[in-house]
Nucleic acid binder design. Sequence first.
RNA 1: GCCGCGUUCGUCUAGAGGCCUAGGACGUCGCCCUUUCACGGCGGUAGCACGGGUUCGAAUCCCGUACGCGGUACCA
Length: 496
Amino acid sequence: MTDHVRVRFAPSPTGMLHIGGLRTALFNYLFAKHHKGSFILRIEDTDQARYVAGAEADITTSLKWAGLDVDEGPEKGGSYGPYRQSERSDIYAKYAAQLVDSGHAYYAFDTSEEIDDMRNRLQSPANPTPKYDSVTRLEMKNSLTLPEEEVKKRLDSGEPFIIRLLVPDGETIRFDDLIRGTVSFESTGLDDQVLLKSDGLPTYHLANVVDDHLMEISHVIRGEEWLSSAPKHILLYRYLGWEPPAMAHLPLIMSPKGGKLSKRNAEELGIPINVRDYIRDRYEPDAVVNFLAYLGWSTGDDREILTLSELTGEFSLDRVSKSGAIFDLKKLQWYNEHYLRARPVQDLVPEVRTIAEDAGYTGFSDDYLAVVIRLMIERAGRLPDVVAQGHFFFRSPESYDDQAMKKAWKENTGELVSEFREAINALSGEGYNAVEIKAQLSSVIEKHGVGFGKLMLPVRLAVTGEGSGPDLFETMVLLGRDEVIARLDAAVGGLN
RNA sequence: GCCGCGUUCGUCUAGAGGCCUAGGACGUCGCCCUUUCACGGCGGUAGCACGGGUUCGAAUCCCGUACGCGGUACCA
């Protein structure tokens, strides 16, 4: 053993990395880095049936995006590898056999039909889910009930078998959870957990205990959904003669609808469920990280905005709360806006160029895009909003906002706009600037004795198609005189 | 059903017996700024699940109830 902090994030490659999985990874990372320890990625691919190609790559990409650098893992390597459980199957089989030898586990030959039969037979309102446990195992086909000869014969003949944990009866299993304090379970309530499946691969329970020990994991930090199986793990450590790592079970992230955040109850609320969706939607990784860190944790003072490295400095498990946290998309948006506005415009230019090009808007200079960003960033929730809400910087309006039109476009509006058009048409070169354009607009409205809005809003509509938006005069300067005049003409011609 | 965990504003949380007339943030509402919208600034709204204890004193400790969540697979 070592006093060096070593934690692992151990996802199963059964799908794209879930946002809750990223939070678990984040808490592990923060804890490790706070203690100058190691953050290890281990791929728990022991379920061949649910394996999804590409899932591991997605996990790696997602962690990288969030800035969670892995110290050891399948790609990175390390001296405790391999880091994919599918590449370690011989190890688990060995320990499973050892447990059988020491009398803490046993062979079982029941087919899944036979187990179903047992459950169906014993099922009742009082016992809706009968377990394979200290009472039922006595009537099943296993090395506890079958004669030794018979067991040997079955094993030798290559008959499929599994290995189950022999859970003791009438024992209280206690352990200290770093977040919840002492947690205790009665062993009588536990079932004889399958350790080794008939395909020769271990279940999560065996694999995770063996690997956490072999990889010298000092702290197991995982979601609360694992709390119920922790006593089985404690038993395994004991039977294998190992010191269990410290444990911390994180509160779950919940859907606003209730229940754990899942694809179904999140996406219908507009909450992206996979990390790759946040990448696709161009959320700021700092924002997502900051938001996730505060789902079940806080500094204790009034600070809310902390970068990954600041979080690392502050993090401690004893400040993690016990109860589930509801995912609040509005708060994430607030974080995102904050981090977005903090970014230098120049850094944003290439990204906005990509977004614009994806929308079919090409041929704009860096300088042009920089001004668009400067004008739009204050009202953007996410970076793509700069292009979506600032569409008029990239093409002429294709339609005009109905509500604003109704309010703004009256009988004499066309004349006012035309007069303004002539006024700015007369401006040339240096003269065409925000101050001068505004002065021309003022002079037109004064001449007609009308308010600012009488001309302002129609011009905005003609130029942008929208009833609201960034500073109109700066917008007109960026667009250029000729373009603006063309748009004014199009509007006056089309709407009168 | 059984086992486990949990319960402070709508949401994330601060609070580890008197500092609490319960603090902050998001949201929401109002006001200000302003060419619109947004940003920003200022202000308001709203909460200790319930019932018993313990104590001079409880959001904080204990018990119970209710509710929520998780688990109950040869899935993780």
